[in-house]
Design a protein around this nucleic acid. Sequence first.
DNA 1: AGTCTTGCCTAATTAAATAAGGTGAAGACG
DNA 2: CGTCTTCACCTTATTTAATTAGGCAAGACT
Lengths: 152, 152
Amino acid sequence: MLDDLDRRLLEILIKDSRTSLKELAQQVGLSSPSVAERLRRLEDRGVIRAFTVEIDPQALGYTLQAIVRIRPLPGKLHIVQKLIEEIPEFGECDKVTGDDCFVARLFVRSIGDLDKLLDRIADKAETSTAIIKAQPIRRRPPPLSATAISNP
Amino acid sequence: MLDDLDRRLLEILIKDSRTSLKELAQQVGLSSPSVAERLRRLEDRGVIRAFTVEIDPQALGYTLQAIVRIRPLPGKLHIVQKLIEEIPEFGECDKVTGDDCFVARLFVRSIGDLDKLLDRIADKAETSTAIIKAQPIRRRPPPLSATAISNP
DNA sequence: AGTCTTGCCTAATTAAATAAGGTGAAGACG
DNA sequence: CGTCTTCACCTTATTTAATTAGGCAAGACT
């Protein structure tokens, strides 16, 4: 699937996607056109979904994050999903097995805003909210090479 | 905090962080050195945390994701946290208020791997696992400008 | 009023990305 | 068993972008 060079290129790009082809090339021992070609293929294959910037919510005034578990009332599932998608403060939402149909992440500037946002869903779903106190692991990609578990 | 030009630059970079300074410059009506300077300052201020690539877990064989709620047994909190951090399949972990001390995202290649991973925590914490069936909202940054809620 | 700072500009320089064309090894096939 | 094709890579030349240096104007500060 991925060879060792691909993995090394990805590791570097995850840390800094602005790394030049030249720099990438010498780190892995290829020429820059070869690196360019590999990257193009990683994108084509969908391994690299996007080149992007990571924004710090705190720096934007979003000092509070919460995990919200959402159980739409009977018949309200689709309306609830649409509603969530349209609220930009939801920074992530997963539809999961179990009673809590959705698990979502909410970015807010204050507890007041949290309350206001949850009110907008309150008549269509039950919610349980947990305020995030710390982030032991911030978003990171899955392992690129075999791990203790996936390849024992 | 951020002016309108900063926001427009960020919006473009979020979509594609490889956008050239020249391109950015003409999109917002500045010269490229000016854009370069603004980006530098956005980084210095910590608004832009990093330039990175988004990896597709599926393309790497991680076809399954789960949300795991973790309640460490008495006295095991730190050990559990350390354990989680060291398992690369955890792609995210938040420490939250409430009974479920941690809420984490797990990337796995199979149900079997999920089971093996949870076993490694089983003697130190209680866990509740929800398999992700769909992702109505994939990771996205908080809103850059005022919203209905945060500025009513 | 004078001067400092800030944010921007243009022009020149340096550096990087891309395009074109060639080489050699591995596997496919007559 | 040899030849042909494909593939991944290389180097070099060209194009394009980033950076540096220096200057200008507006608003803040003394």
